[in-house]
Design a protein around this nucleic acid. Structure first.
Length: 487
RNA sequence: GGCCCGUUGGUCAAGCGGUUAAGACACCGGCCUUUCACGCCGGCAACAGGGGUUCGAAUCCCCUACGGGUCACCA
């Protein structure tokens, strides 16, 4: 088998989309597993919408996810440049050939004229399409148009009555009739190539072996094939992967919530969880394991286990998977991720002392198991910072009124006061002793203390909470919420 | 509308002519536990419909329905 060369070719018109990531990922995985090359090319021929900022965003996102490219923008390579606007002479060269061989021609119709034509067809109840007005202009006619100052576009002359078969690795053979394709534009009036044209030249010159891209490109493929053939260029193998849909089963867009990678990054998703999740969207492993590192994905990935049907993006599953990864990740890393959220919420100062970090780490350890994404940390830590504790509801208030409460609180407070230092192990012991000495069931001891300290019926382990609060705060809260003087 | 792709539980999905139709998320129940979460155990729940082909169809063919994509001087 020839060497695998695959590419991800986004247009820098916005932040990297979740669907784009999956295309990039599948390409990357195929490259890595075969020892092939993964290329990043930027398709920036839409001057209006392309921006350098978007390009940077896309590259940052890819790097963050661990999808690194072997060849392409920034890193270079033997087939550069890797930005389409820097490859204009190349496109020119092949356009000249197409023009000479009659596979392409100049069209002088203005957008207004075409619009008019479209409306006329629509009015007659016919399908709007290009009628081929300029297909066979004489040199004189062309000259006349040019004198008018018209700027031509270049159209590809689509042959009639041809059957074009796309051999697709995930869909099998898909046939199209050339008659259903109008002469399409390959060079815009501003001289820049269109997608359908540039993509062919680039893929061919960059010796791309497999074009793995979203299904929305499937209907464009016959046009591209026509260009390959007109130019006698070697064709790559195609693989069109299905789209990612939103909850309403239409192509995922902003309406469906977060669609760009940065949004997930900002919410505190782990890149490895996102990669794992996206890999499972449209591809399925052979066994029953669903947790995969990038390395494992590289080993297991296979194009023939890629599904044909579109997949709905399931945020619940992503959250579960991400939460799972968070639980598996060392507390140090989650703490580093959590700190910015805690600062933003005003729980931590802008500049942290070593003690602040230590405290943050303990807090994160206590709530790590609750987080679907790290940003959710702020929803679980009010109990550590609140100035005043109040029972969250009547049920909690009732707990504080149970008859054993005074003795429980007094005894426990005394133990806390007398303790050398409060840490998980010693607190566990104090709690045990309290319940033993009073001959009370765990619940009768733990719940009042929990409510007295946090106001909540639920939350992290008491032996995690208490050392974080510290002796002073514990005593203060116990007396404040129960109204007992604990001197 | 033309062309193209698709349709297995609420969601992701396995299955590639003979299975009690996997597994995961979600949901429900139980266990564990000082609570919740985690974890463990169990449960609910699907082949879009209709015709063929075949001894036998989720699997192959046709039709219908539904969903999506594409028909740009966007990619």
């Amino acid at each position: 088998m020839e060497k695998v060369r695959v590419r991800f070719a986004p247009s820098p018109t916005g932040p990297l989309h979740i669907g784009g990531v999956r295309s990039a990922l599948f390409n990357y995985l195929l490259a890595k597993q075969t020892g092939g090359t993964f290329i990043l090319r930027i398709e920036d021929t839409d001057l209006e919408r392309s921006s350098r900022e978007s390009e940077e965003n896309i590259k940052d996102s890819l790097r963050w996810l661990g999808i690194d490219w072997d060849e392409g923008v920034d890193v270079g390579g033997p087939y550069g440049p890797y930005r389409q606007t820097e490859r204009l002479e190349l496109y020119q060269e092949y356009v000249d050939r197409l023009l000479e061989t009659g596979h392409a021609y100049r069209c002088y119709c203005t957008e207004d004229e075409l619009e008019e034509q479209r409306q006329a067809l629509l009015a007659k109840g016919e399908m709007p399409r290009y009628l081929g007005n300029c297909r066979d202009l004489t040199p004189e006619q062309e000259e006349a148009y040019r004198k008018e100052g018209r700027k031509p576009v270049i159209r590809f002359r689509v042959p009639e009555g041809e059957n074009i078969v796309v051999d697709d690795l995930v869909r099998g053979q898909v046939a199209f009739e050339s008659d259903g394709i109008g002469d399409f534009i390959i060079v815009k009036s501003d001289g820049l190539p269109t997608y359908n044209y540039a993509v062919v030249i680039d893929d061919a010159l960059m010796k791309i072996s497999h074009v793995i891209r979203a299904e929305e490109h499937l209907s464009n493929t016959p046009r591209q094939l026509l260009i390959y053939r007109a130019l006698g260029l070697a064709e790559p193998v195609f693989a069109h992967i299905s789209l990612i849909l939103g909850k309403d089963r239409t192509k995922m867009s902003k309406r469906h919530g977060s669609t760009s990678v940065v949004q997930y990054k900002e919410q505190g998703y782990l890149p490895e969880a996102l990669v794992n999740f996206l890999a499972l969207l449209g591809w399925s492993p052979e066994g029953e394991e669903e947790i995969f590192s990038m390395e494992e994905l590289c080993r297991q990935f296979s194009l023939d286990r890629v599904a044909k049907n579109p997949a709905v993006f399931d945020l619940d599953k992503l959250n579960w998977l991400n939460g799972y990864y968070i639980r598996q990740t060392p507390v140090e890393r989650i703490t580093e991720m959590a700190i910015p959220y805690l600062i933003k919420e005003g729980y931590l100062p802008e500049t942290l002392t070593p003690e602040d970090r230590e405290q943050a780490s303990k807090i994160v350890a206590a709530v790590q198991g609750y987080l679907p994404y790290v940003g959710a940390v702020v929803d679980h830590v009010q109990i550590f910072f609140a100035d005043e504790i109040k029972p969250e509801n009547e049920e909690a208030a009732a707990v504080l009124k149970e008859e054993q409460v005074p003795q429980v609180v007094e005894l426990f407070a005394a133990k806390v006061k007398g303790a050398e230092e409060l840490e998980t192990g010693s607190v566990k012991k104090l709690l045990k002793e309290t319940s033993k000495e009073l001959k009370l069931k765990g619940r009768q001891v733990f719940m009042p203390i929990r409510v007295a300290l946090t106001g909540q019926m639920h939350g992290p382990e008491l032996h995690d909470i208490i050392p974080i609060l510290g002796k002073e705060k514990v005593l203060q809260r116990l007396s404040q919420t129960t109204g007992l003087s604990l001197s």
